[in-house]
Amino acid sequence: MADVRLASVSKRFGTTAALTDLSLDIEDGDFVVMLGPTGAGKTTTLRSIAGLDTIDGGDITIGGHSVAGLTPAQRDVAMVFQQYSLYPHLTVRDNLAFPLKSPLMSLDKAAIKRKVAEVAEVLHISHKLDNKATALSGGEMQRVSIGRALVRDPAIYLMDEPLSSLDAKLRSELRVELKRVQADLGATLLYVTHDQIEAMTMATRVGVLDKGRLVQFGTPRDVYENPASLYVATRLGLPRINALPANVFGAGAPSGATTIGLRPEHIRQGEGRSTRVTRVEHLGDQTRLHLDLDGHALVTLTDAHSALSPGDTLSVTPANPLWFDSAGARVG
């Protein structure tokens, strides 16, 4: 395991800039999650570190050494691809053993067998070891592809939305498992996702990407509570943060603020402006209330057994709001 540093990395595809001046420090043992919508440059970041794409500017170091001009093999990275990338003509066992058979590993047959069995156990695919890679469900393929990375002990694990194609139950199971494996191994891991729950639950640090730029980097709690911009605030939190004109709750906005950002839990009920309830979603453990405030939609949470129904009136007032200026940057 090693620390990985990106210094002012830039990458262009033709005329579009995929990464712009991206700097990122991943400490040894860090679990860094990169968040961002499609096209934000998440996958390009992974591929640049892996050496599958060559960067146009800046530098990448792994374990203190620049990897410029090195092949993926020389960089000693393991990667889980979003589209599985299994070897279709090989069995699950051979897929998992493939990286171990590299002469660089110099492992004997027994060690390979042990390692494969161990990883298969963790990922619940032991019973599928003799299946061909193409004779698996999507979830199983994804687990094999995670396993093919986990059998190794590389400088860094790079994972590109590895849980996106799994069903909800398996996803939450593997989330816990992956976090445990990472903590046990003390592995350095860069993980790309657009699922904020994965980011919040697994990351030691979260990086938010916007159009190829790193707009915020910090602990999940810090990024959630102190977003640098409205864009970052919308990437974390479910239901999403409510963004309303700054003056809807009257005066009190700091100078320059044009938007008030209210997380659902930052709305106190029972006083202030009166709103109309438009929709009530009972989720079992909580209830989501959709409100209408002078034509602005607003979502908040309430008691699981709330008796409110559409058409009712509810008074709300902000508590600990976030303020943003017209460009979306944080003000106060």
């Binding site: 093999a73 000693d76 393991a78 990338s85 299994l86 070897y87 279709p88 493939f98 990286p99 093919r148």
Partner: peptide
């Protein structure tokens, strides 16, 4: 992407030819 995976898995060009 299969060749990319093999690159990452540190398979030489020769091994890529014979195993893929």
């Amino acid at each position: 992407y299969i060749y990319e995976a093999a690159e990452i898995d540190r398979a030489s060009k020769l091994r890529q030819f014979f195993t893929i």
